[in-house]
Amino acid sequence: MTAMQIIFLIVAAVTLGGALMIATSRRMMHTVLWLVLTLMGVAVLFALLQANFFSVVQVLVYIGAIAILILFGVMLTRRSMVDAGESLVHKNWWVVAVVIALLFAAIVISIQPWGAAHTPLVELMEFKEPISDLGEALVDPAAYLIPFEVSSVLLLAVMVAAIYIAVDRKGGKS
């Protein structure tokens, strides 16, 4: 058991623990805060995998943008959940838990016979993360120009659509 494996196990425990707290937490606000912890664990996992750029992107995009957006959503729609006074979790949750435990067991059992799954991921030697190569490839027509432009159009369309859907066209007081 090397030091890296111990670090991995600690981070995995924190990540899965945060995810379990999301599943069991009764208050939406606490759920979002546990989501932030889970996303932070995933960012550390990216760093362990030497995907350093995406570790930073995970913190910026997921924790900085998406978690805060969800936090705003919770605060804007909180009233009804408090008034209803009912559980946030469906009453037949244990049926779902059994089915999903079976699914997890099926995945783990199907991974085991595959020999390549047990390859140790060694540290990439003399590895500098090719950020400048990535940047050039994204605007190179021979490489990834089309996926880049398509995702730009997607983000623009999403921005327009989100404003169009969420704006109050009737001018009501709510």
Binding site: F8, A12, L45, V108, I111, A116, A117, T119, P120, L121
Partner: peptide
Amino acid sequence: MIPLSWYLIL
């Protein structure tokens, strides 16, 4: 080092 299967199971 960390085996690939650990990441897959996580």
